[in-house]
Amino acid sequence: MARYLFGRIVSALLVVWLVVTLTFFLMHAIPGGPFSSEKILPPAIMENINQRYHLNDPLANQYLDYLKNIAHFNFGPTFRYEGRTVNDLFREGLPKTIALGLVATVLALVGGTMMGIIAALKQNKAPDYIATFLATIGVSVPSFVLATFLQYFVGFKTHWFPPIGWGEAKNLVLPALALSAYPIAQITRLTRSSMLDVLNQDYIRTAKSKGLPGYIIVLRHALRNALIPVVTFMGPFFAYILTGNFVVEYVFNIPGIGQFFVTSIGNRDYPVIMGTTILFATLLVTFNLLVDIAYTVVDPRIKLTGRKGA
């Protein structure tokens, strides 16, 4: 296990480095720069700014300098938010993004699993049809449509929840719903089908023959087996929560990292683009590692070893 973890962490660092390198050069390949705008600055001032931010240095030098900086967790200054560093933006935005992501994750896992179990236990009855219908909608409606829909009808029209903004717990409700609709739907479908499969297994019959009550059979014997396919979905799930977050934060005007990420690209705010990309890449790699570890917790037949083919 320790050997496996070591290997995984080394390869994770390699992945992050690749992401850094690719993003860095791609970013500089886009025409325009952080300070080019409709209002043309006098060349002398332009020269000054470029000098100040080392934008005139050869690209290779800029790249090496950047690597040196991020090795010390210094992501540089921002070009557009005066007097603030990328680290400041992280400190400000990350807690909000994490709060939203966490609520959406809990909603998706709890809601999706519960709906899936109910649908499977009441197969071909009303609860099953309702759950399957909701899941089909959740899978097919894109998050920006749902976000706008919720914002307008549930937020603006009925005033049940604030349609925009940040600060109180109730501000989280609509964005979290919009963000978790798709994963709830996927987890419902996965749980339902694997639950139906598991309930027909021989070991469920054994559990019944032991005289165990229904809820123990479902929760202890069936659910853990049914969750194995759900764990597989957790990798893409976290990727979805991270990227879906950009749109949802934008629609609901939440000052999280996702917002900075989207605006920074239009602004060519090089350090912010780099910083947010590295942050998301690192989060994704970490979650994937956690998912692989979660496998061993759910299914004892899976063992993580550092050896190939083991």
């Binding site: 070991y203 023959s209 005289g211 202890r220 004892p300």
Partner: peptide, 26 residues
């Protein structure tokens, strides 16, 4: 009431021992 008889007064063994035990429980 049947669940209080199964496993207590009546036990059952099945055909395929490979699939009759729950793989994720000790």
């Amino acid at each position: 009431q049947m669940t209080t008889i199964r496993g207590k007064s009546m036990g059952m063994i099945f055909q395929d021992p490979m699939t009759s035990l729950n793989p994720v429980l000790t």
